[in-house]
Each structure stands twice: as structure tokens, then as C-alpha cells.
Design a protein around this nucleic acid. Structure first.
Length: 814
RNA sequence: GCCCGGGUGGCGAAACCGGCAGACGCAAAGGACUUAAAAUCCUUUUCCCGGCAACGGGAGUGCGGGUUCAAGUCCCGCCCCGGGCACCA
């Protein structure tokens, strides 16, 4: 019988066509089956899928298909994070309109996703650049405004010269833009819109422990904890000698306050202007400018004495007030007390500026070091601190906070590192911020009934200057909704992270034209059972969407406190050079080439087999062939045994192969249920096919009839095209992923006998086959009598025999 | 500096609860088939020592200690790599 060749092109084309219109992957709103909502992070439509996408979506797709087979009602959507700078840059560089460029990219990538065989319910597709979508961004903006969660302020902001826009703190990496890793951000004073994520700092932190612990990767949780940066301490007012103003400082170490030798203000501090003379102000300005240019970290500690003094409320001591370039205006109160003996930074500063160093904390089991060479920063016993002397640090802090409250000069206080989310962007391709600036009424929100504020199409892209929208008179000129007078629209657009903060809710009701979604529909699916994406979004997207969910909950739109019950972060795809694949490094591989050459199934298998999904995946082009060979072996085995008249066969071969089959079902099922280590699932399937080849000639028809369909079903989540084609050739009806997942019989999976390892003094000396459950005494006897162990026992005394039933006997001799 | 990961053959990896280290795959070498090549199939492949040989012995999971009958796995102290945070008071 001639072999039928495995022609991936023909097979994939055939099923591609059949799947296209079949609407196979619909979630059923009326199903009684338990729901399972799986979402992969939506891509930016750059025009081509890259390997990172393929990896992300192959993991999610395998899971979705598996859960269908397990009988769940699965919702598995896909969409487009369609606003963003590259579209605008394409417009500047190539004269293509961002909309047209974006839409053609979406069409291309959607085609690639179809080719990959990803099982999405495309009826739920959303695209954030459509007015039907972004009008709800605007609606949320208005709600934030109503609730006092949106505000406008002038601030020093991170400006990326490459992007031509400001960035949120989360979008600055090592002082550089997150999209342009070599472009330093500059600080610019601008007026822009902020969202009060800080109002939710405490809850965002608490729910990490209460709701996410154990369900999100520890790495992501620790990054978020870090980012929120909760810090407990005290706020203490220092009275100025020469003015009525007080300087409020934040400190975590009020127990060291008797060691304070100065009070230091940030150069931007409002009091700095007042205290400094002309010359001092010029120095302060220099410090501010230097910081704007250099970026943090590589700045020498500089300072200026203001000539004024403040009074330590505990000791009554007079402390000089300085300006210091290392004091940050936007953390704490913008002012600190300097305790050089117990803080490294203060130590540095005071050393260089000749300020005294006064130690007041001694180690619990040591002496007070009166002439320290470095700061002693640990807690200890408070000394030289009046009534607090002799107390432990923690107790001193407690009592000192009490005293501050009682006497009205301070209190216990909590400070967070996280700052409000700056959402204004001086770019075109984003959601217009729905406010109007009226010369008479000031900032006026666009009335809800006038939403959406639609992006105009006729915009000039010069790549220079400010928001492109500001140049479009037909957009900008508007009547004030309040007084009817001439007014101007806001010309900034929203950060695109707004779009992705709630898109997975919109999937549940994507065409709703009266609300962002119907809460009942969302309630059916939320929280997301499994969210899958790159770890790069650990603190960007993933903290913004947690914030958004909490706001939506407080608006009464959703009932869940968190959007994502379980998070999985897959590792990066590394290039051949061992660093992350990226266009700028030129080490990318286009998945399309691989799909052309080897087929989508091989490509999917390849990304799943190369490494466990949470680990970074090294690139090794050569091993693709191995995956292809495996699929061909499956193909050949199934096709040539479809209706081979195998007869009664050899019952021992049947038993061997069926045992392997059931062991494989067990292995693959466990991998899906526990760790998603699909590399080992696929390895198990390879072992099965190896075993089948070994025993092929001896198998009975009956055994083949059990094995072939099970093998095809097991392959379904990983290689859907091949599975579907073979399923049809087996004469079966219906799509593979709608078949019940094969179950294993523990009895059939069991080996005939336990292989027990024989050790002498921990070294392997032999093996014996014993029936399962053989009593310990019997195993011990067999081990002592075994010819393999005998030579190592001769002339020695048996001290002890360790028996692990069905596994191992270790004879300890002396 | 602090907080997470991680370090196992030539390479990617496996060993999930302390019980045979290296499953599975890649690459390499040898062989079968072939006029030949490709494809396919079979064999070998951690290192060292002994043996013509099936085989036998020893060492071995970044380094040094420890616990244990038994350690890649647990504990202590280091080194290296990746990631995050970092004048955050």
C-alpha cells in the first residue's frame, strides 16, 4: 500500500477554509457547563506576528482547546491594542494614515492567526481605535472626573523626545523610555491629566496578599509590592525660627530624631523660595535643571544652607535648614530630617558639608559607636534621647508618634512610592480626552450625550511640535457646553494603557452601544480564569487594569475586586544570540517563514517543546526538524494503520502499548492540570509513538482501534490541523476539540511488576522485579539474597535495611 | 545594596513529595536500505579507569561545608548569570 504523504499545506488550507465560517469557537451563553474564561494579552497590530505572540497564543490555545474537551463552556476572545505611536510614525515616515495603516495591519495579523489555527471567537473581537470602543474610555474619564479621581495639574513630567510625548512613571525604565531603551527621558513642566491610582494604593497592596497570592507569579506580585512601595513612618513638623511656617518631614525612623543634625528641603520645595536668598535660588534652579538632564543615580550630593534654622520638636535643638539635590519633592513631604549617624545618604551629605554626626542608636548587644565610620542603619536601643533613652527602636517610635499626636506636631503616617497615573499624551493616535477649555467656565467636561469625541481624520503629521490635534481647527473650535461661548477642545489624547485596562470586559458584550458592557454578561464570565501574557507588563498593564477594576466596582459596574483570578507569564523568546528577540537587535525570526516551510502545527509544537512555558526560550532553529519528524511519524502511523487487517495480534504487545497509552494520557492530563509543562507532555507523546513503532507489526486490530483515536485526541490541543485531518480519516464526526478528553485507566497504566532498586550503602547494585505491594520483609529477604548485592555484603556486617515498598531497598553495611 | 528567578552532557531540557541523574528532542559518529543522494530505519554518544568483548569499577547536577541509610532536590556559607527595585528618607 503506497504511503500517503503528510502535506501540511494541503491539510492546513483545507481546515483553514472549513473552520473559517463555522463559528466553531463560540462560547455558549446558555450552556449549563461551568464557564472558563481564558484571555491572552491582546497584541499591538504592528503588521506581523512575532515569535513572542506565537508562543503566548500557542499556550493559550492549547489550554482553551483542552478545556473545551474537558467539557467547559470556554470563552476565548482576541482583539487589537490598536492605538499607539508606531501608526503615527508610519504616517510621518510613509504618508499613510494611521487608521488605514492600522486596519491593514490588523487584517494581516488576523490572517496569520487564522493560519496558526488559533481558536478564537471572532464575534467578540474588539479594536481599541474604533469610536465604539474608545467612546467608553471617554465615558470612564467622565466618571473618574465626577468621582474626583481625575484631576489636572502642572507637574514635572517624563518627556520622551523620541515619542514626542510625556510618559507615566511606569513607562520609564532606568531613566529611559520603555519603547526607546536608549533614549533618556527629560523632565518637562507640563499641565496634564492624572488619575488617582494612589487612592487605591492600599487596596491594590492588600489584595496582592488576600486575593492574588499563589495565583499570580510571585515575581509579578513582588514587583507590584515594590512599585506600590508602602512605607510606614511619621510626619513631624519642624517649627522655623524666623518664619511662622513649619517644615513637615516624613521619616520611617523617628526613633533617631535626637540624632538629627539638619533639615533638608527638596530644591522644588515651596518653602525653598522663601528661605533662600537670590544666590541660593539660583543654585536651587541649577540643581533642578541638572536633575532634569542627568537622570537619577549619577548625581553628586549637593546642598545649600538657607541661613535659617528649625527647631527639633522633641529636643528643642536648633537645626540648620538646607536645600539638598537628593531630596525628592514628589516623595513623602519633599523634606527630610538628616540623621547622618543612622542613614547612609544623610551620612554622605553631612560628611561632605561638614555637618555634625550624632549617634543615638546602639546595637542591641553592643556599645554606642561615638565616632562612626559609616551609618548604623539597623534598629537597636535608643540612647542620648531624653525620656526615650534605653527603649528599643520600635517601642520608641510608637511612643514618639503618640507624643507627636498629643502635642499636635505630627503623627504616624504611611507614604507610598506609587504616584498618580499621568494619562495625557501629546499625540494624535489615541482617545481624545473629552473636555473643553472655556475662557469663561474653565475646564468643562464634554456631556455624556455628546460622546464619542471622534478623532478627526484630516490631520497633518509633521512629527514636530505639540499635539497634532491642536492644529485641526475643525476639531478644536467648539462651543462651551455650559455657556455656549467659543471654546477649545483638549488637544491631548489618552495613554494607550487606558485602552487595555478594561478590554477584557468589553469582550463579554462587544457591541453594546448604550454602556461599556452589560454587567450581567460580565458577571457570567468574570473574573478571568486564566490570563496569559508576557512578564513585561507586570507593573504597567497589570497594575492599571487592577486599578480600573476597582474603580469599575465602585461605580457599580462589576462585582469582582480583581480582574484576573490566575495569571500566567510566559518567558521571552530569545534570539540565536541569547538575548531577547527584537527588531532593533536584528535577531528576529519571522514565524511566517516557519509556517510556510514546516506548517503551523510544527511551529506550535516547536514553541511548546523548546522549554517549559514560564521560562525564557532559546532559539534553536535546527530542532524544528525534530518536531516536524514527530508529526510525520504520527501521520504515517495513523494513516497506514487506519484499516490494516491486523487480526488478533500479539497480546503482550497489545498490553505493552495500551499501558503506554494510558500512561501518556495520565502524563498529558496531569501537565494540563498542574504546571503546563507542555514540553514534557509532548515528550510523553513522542515516547508513545516510539513504543508504537516498536510494536507496530504485532498489534491487534482491537488495540489499534483504541489507540488511534486516543492518540489523535491527545494531539489535538497542540497540533489541531493534523489532529482534525486524522480524525476525519478515522471516520469520526465533529471537531476534535469538541470530543471528550480521553481518560486513563489506572489499572491499565500500571506496570506488571514493580522494579525495585537494590542499593548497598546508597549505591545502586541491581534491580529486581517484584509484584506490587510485596511486604517489606519479603523485599528485604530478596535484596539480601540477590546475586548482585552478594559481593558487596561478603565479610561485612549488615547494620540496617531500608525498604521503600515498590521502589527501593538500601542495605547498610559496615 | 535589597527582592525575585536560575546554574544539570556538545546544545534545549527531564527527574513534580529526599529514593536508579540525564527521559524526550537537537547535533554528532557509525551502520542498514539505495547505482547514488535525500528521506526512513537501527546503533552509539556525561567523564575517567580496566577489558577483544557483553561488561565491570570509580567520579559526576556552579563552589565549600552539613543533615540523612540515601541529596540535583533539604540546611548553612560563598561564586556566577538573568530580571525587578533603588538617593523613596
Amino acid at each position: 500500500m503506497p504511503e500517503i504523504p503528510y502535506d501540511h499545506r494541503q491539510i492546513e488550507l483545507k481546515w483553514h477554509e472549513r473552520w473559517k465560517d463555522a463559528e466553531l469557537y463560540r462560547a455558549d451563553p446558555h450552556s449549563a457547563a461551568p464557564k472558563y474564561y481564558v484571555v491572552e494579552m491582546l497584541p499591538y497590530p504592528s503588521g506581523r506576528l512575532h515569535m513572542g505572540h506565537v508562543r503566548n497564543y500557542s499556550i493559550g490555545d492549547a489550554l482553551a482547546r483542552y478545556m473545551w474537551m474537558r467539557g467547559y463552556n470556554v470563552q476565548h476572545p482576541m482583539g487589537w491594542d490598536a492605538f499607539g505611536l508606531p501608526a503615527e510614525n508610519a504616517a510621518i515616515e510613509r504618508g499613510r494614515h494611521p487608521r488605514e495603516w492600522t486596519l491593514s495591519n490588523i487584517a494581516a495579523m488576523k490572517g496569520q492567526m487564522h493560519r496558526m489555527g488559533f481558536a478564537y471567537d471572532w464575534r467578540l473581537e474588539i479594536s481599541s481605535c474604533e469610536p465604539e470602543y474608545y467612546r467608553w474610555n471617554q465615558w470612564f474619564f467622565l466618571k473618574m472626573l465626577e468621582r474626583g479621581l481625575a484631576y489636572r495639574k502642572q507637574a514635572l513630567l517624563n518627556w520622551c523626545p523620541e515619542c514626542g510625548t510625556v510618559l507615566a512613571n511606569e513607562q520609564v525604565v532606568d531613566g529611559c523610555c520603555w519603547r526607546h531603551e536608549t533614549t533618556r527621558v527629560e523632565l518637562r513642566a507640563l499641565e496634564q491629566w492624572f488619575w488617582k491610582i494612589t487612592d487605591y494604593a492600599e487596596e491594590l497592596l492588600r489584595d496582592i496578599d488576600e486575593k492574588l497570592e499563589g495565583k499570580w507569579p510571585e515575581r509579578v506580585l513582588s514587583m507590584q509590592r515594590n512599585w506600590i512601595g508602602r512605607s510606614e513612618g511619621s510626619e513631624i513638623d519642624f517649627r522655623l525660627e524666623s518664619f511662622s511656617d513649619r517644615i513637615r518631614v516624613f521619616t520611617t525612623r523617628v526613633d533617631t530624631i535626637f540624632g538629627a543634625t539638619a533639615v533638608i528641603l527638596a530644591p522644588e520645595h515651596p518653602l525653598a523660595r522663601k528661605l533662600l536668598d537670590e544666590k541660593g535660588r539660583a543654585r536651587a534652579k541649577q540643581m533642578i535643571d541638572a536633575r532634569a538632564q542627568k537622570g537619577p543615580g549619577d548625581i553628586e550630593k549637593e546642598g545649600v544652607f538657607t541661613g535659617h534654622h528649625a527647631v527639633n520638636p522633641y529636643s528643642g535643638e536648633k537645626l540648620p535648614v538646607w536645600i539638598g539635590n537628593f531630596v525628592l519633592m514628589d516623595y513623602g513631604t519633599g523634606a527630610i530630617m538628616a540623621v547622618p549617624a543612622h542613614d547612609e545618604r544623610d551620612f554622605d551629605f553631612c560628611k561632605t558639608h561638614g555637618l555634625p554626626i550624632v549617634p543615638v542608636i546602639r546595637p542591641v548587644d553592643g556599645e554606642l559607636d561615638v565616632n562612626p565610620k559609616a551609618a548604623f542603619v539597623a534598629d537597636g536601643i535608643v540612647e542620648r534621647s531624653g525620656e526615650y533613652s534605653g527603649l528599643e527602636s520600635a517601642e520608641a517610635r510608637r511612643l514618639m508618634n503618640e507624643r507627636a499626636g498629643r502635642d499636635g506636631f505630627g503623627k504616624a503616617a504611611v507614604t507610598y512610592r506609587i504616584k498618580d497615573w499621568g494619562i495625557s499624551r501629546q499625540r494624535y493616535w489615541g482617545t481624545p480626552i473629552p473636555v473643553i477649555h472655556c475662557p469663561k467656565c474653565g475646564v468643562v467636561p464634554v456631556p455624556e450625550k455628546d460622546l464619542p469625541v471622534v478623532l478627526p481624520d484630516d490631520v497633518k503629521f509633521t512629527g514636530k511640535g505639540r499635539s497634532p490635534l491642536a492644529e485641526v481647527d475643525s476639531f478644536m473650535n467648539v462651543k462651551c457646553p455650559k455657556c455656549g461661548g467659543d471654546a477649545r477642545r483638549e488637544s491631548d489624547t489618552m495613554d494607550t494603557f487606558v485602552d487595555s485596562s478594561w478590554y477584557f470586559y468589553r469582550y463579554c458584550d462587544p457591541r453594546n452601544s448604550t454602556a461599556p458592557f452589560d454587567s450581567a454578561k460580565v458577571k457570567k464570565w468574570f473574573p478571568i480564569d486564566q490570563y496569559i501574557g508576557g512578564v513585561t507588563h507586570a507593573i504597567l498593564h497589570l497594575i492599571y487594569s487592577r486599578f480600573f477594576t476597582k474603580v469599575m466596582r465602585d461605580l457599580g459596574l462589576v462585582e469582582n475586586d480583581e480582574p484576573v483570578a490566575n495569571l500566567f507569564t510566559q518567558g521571552m523568546v530569545l534570539g540565536a544570540d541569547g538575548t531577547a528577540m527584537s527588531k532593533s537587535k536584528g535577531n528576529t525570526v519571522d514565524p511566517e517563514d516557519m509556517v510556510d516551510k514546516y506548517g503551523a502545527d510544527t511551529c506550535r509544537l516547536f514553541v511548546l517543546f523548546a522549554a517549559p512555558p514560564e521560562k525564557d526560550m532559546p532559539w534553536n532553529e535546527a530542532s524544528v526538524g525534530g518536531q516536524r519528524r514527530f508529526l510525520e511519524r504520527v501521520w504515517r502511523f495513523v494513516t497506514r494503520n487506519l484499516d490494516r487487517d491486523a487480526g488478533a495480534g500479539d497480546s503482550s504487545a497489545d498490553r505493552r502499548v495500551l499501558r503506554k497509552l494510558h500512561q501518556t494520557i495520565r502524563k498529558v492530563t496531569e501537565d494540563f492540570n498542574n504546571r503546563w509543562h507542555f514540553n514534557t507532555s509532548i515528550a510523553a507523546l513522542m515516547e508513545l509513538i516510539n513504543e508504537l513503532y516498536d510494536d507496530e507489526k504485532m498489534l491487534s486490530r482491537g488495540a489499534l482501534d483504541q489507540i488511534l483515536p486516543a492518540l489523535v485526541l491527545l494531539l489535538g490541543p497542540f497540533a489541531p490541523y493534523l489532529a482534525e485531518e486524522l480524525w476525519e480519516r478515522l471516520g469520526r464526526k465533529g471537531p476534535v476539540f469538541r470530543q471528550p478528553w480521553p481518560t486513563y485507566d489506572p489499572e491499565l497504566a500500571k506496570e506488571d511488576a514493580a522494579e525495585v532498586v537494590l542499593q548497598v550503602n546508597g549505591k545502586v547494585r541491581g534491580h529486581i522485579a517484584v509484584r506490587f505491594g510485596a511486604p517489606q520483609a519479603e523485599l528485604e529477604k530478596l535484596a539480601l539474597a540477590d546475586p548482585k548485592t552478594q559481593p558487596f555484603l561478603a565479610g561485612r556486617q549488615v547494620v540496617k535495611v531500608i525498604v521503600v515498598p515498590d521502589k527501593l531497598v538500601n542495605i547498610v553495611v559496615r
